[in-house]
Simulated scan of single mutants.
Amino acid sequence: MSHSRKTRIVTAPEPGGPEALRIEERTLEPPGEGEVLIEVAAAGVNRPDVFERMGLYPPPKDAPEGLGLEVSGHVLELGKGVEGIRQGDAVVALVAGGGYADIARARAETVLPAPKGISLEHAAGLPETVFTVWTNVFGRAGLKPGERFLVHGGASGIGTTAIQMARAHGAHVTATAGSEGKCRLCSELGADTALNYRTEDWPARVRDAGGADVILDMVGGDYVQKNLSCLNVEGRIVMIAFLKGSRVEVDLMGLMLKRQTITGSTLRARRIEDKRVIAQAVHDRVWPWIEAGRLKPQIDTVFDLDAVAQAHARMDAMAHAGKILLRP
């Protein structure tokens, strides 16, 4: 029988730094049609959460209240019309908000069985990154086996996932990162080449090694022209964030002559039908890589939910390598 439940959530009533975060208690209504309530084992911390905390990334109108875009845990309750999921199932889910919580609300279309071979807690580091990499690198950019793939921020949650997925797919992988230690991690995860962007002329190194067919970029700014300079004929750049800004001045003559493509996407505001298609592809194509040991989430730190401000401070400092998780 359905009844209301109590949960903690994390909000940012006023935009600001990590100190702006607040832990509040809410009464959760029962799941609506097509919804699932999940008792959270862990939640992933992602860069969009930081932008939301700063007031730069407003949630969609129908998103659950609070920060957090991915969780793992056990199914607590099912709404009407939900099929293929049972109470008590171990799952991961991409959520539109409210993931930093004891109980999270998800659309059934974005809930997947937790993959075998990794802990349920660590599985919380999968949905946001895997969905993002799949839809951008494999969907929009159409990365093929044997192609040359370049990913920036190789030691980030997205980067560590992209390296492993591209390698499992049979691509030649180059990653950039900001320290020798982070470059070593990229190499350990399967990058054929790892370049320290602080000390190396990475566009020249990429060009000298044969250029890039697909580039995954979350930096923007002056990286856009640098990316174009080492992108091959028929190459594709996929933009997923803009740490250096989204307004850029570029010379597009090379793009025209080399028939290059610049594209990009966001995930959170996509239609639920789009997310369902991505989820099915991830289940069919990526889960087997995880269960075969070819992909696993790289976990940097696990914080208790009460220490959410510390988790955000670590992400702000860009000190992390891999995913930061919150444990309720």
Rank of each mutant, 00 (worst) to 15 (best):
128 E>S: 02
128 E>G: 11
128 E>K: 06
129 T>Q: 09
130 V>H: 01
131 F>C: 04
132 T>D: 08
132 T>N: 06
132 T>Q: 14
133 V>F: 00
133 V>E: 05
134 W>H: 15
136 N>C: 05
136 N>K: 00
136 N>F: 02
137 V>H: 06
137 V>L: 10
137 V>R: 11
138 F>I: 00
142 G>T: 14
142 G>S: 13
143 L>D: 01
147 E>L: 00
147 E>I: 04
147 E>C: 14
147 E>S: 06
148 R>K: 13
149 F>I: 09
149 F>Y: 04
150 L>Y: 12
151 V>T: 13
153 G>W: 03
154 G>E: 05
154 G>N: 03
156 S>N: 03
157 G>S: 10
157 G>F: 09
157 G>L: 01
158 I>C: 00
159 G>K: 02
159 G>I: 09
160 T>N: 04
162 A>N: 12
164 Q>S: 03
164 Q>A: 08
165 M>Q: 08
165 M>F: 07
165 M>I: 04
167 R>S: 09
167 R>I: 14
167 R>D: 06
169 H>G: 12
169 H>T: 14
171 A>V: 12
171 A>H: 01
172 H>T: 12
173 V>R: 01
174 T>K: 00
174 T>F: 06
175 A>V: 14
177 A>E: 01
177 A>P: 10
177 A>H: 11
177 A>I: 06
178 G>F: 11
178 G>H: 10
178 G>Y: 06
178 G>A: 10
179 S>C: 13
180 E>K: 15
180 E>Q: 13
180 E>L: 12
181 G>M: 08
181 G>R: 15
182 K>I: 01
182 K>D: 04
183 C>L: 04
183 C>N: 02
185 L>E: 01
185 L>A: 06
186 C>H: 13
186 C>Y: 06
187 S>G: 11
188 E>F: 04
188 E>H: 11
189 L>K: 02
190 G>W: 00
191 A>W: 06
191 A>E: 12
193 T>R: 07
194 A>G: 05
194 A>V: 06
196 N>P: 15
197 Y>C: 05
197 Y>A: 10
198 R>W: 03
198 R>H: 12
198 R>V: 15
199 T>V: 09
200 E>K: 09
201 D>R: 09
201 D>Y: 03
201 D>V: 10
203 P>E: 15
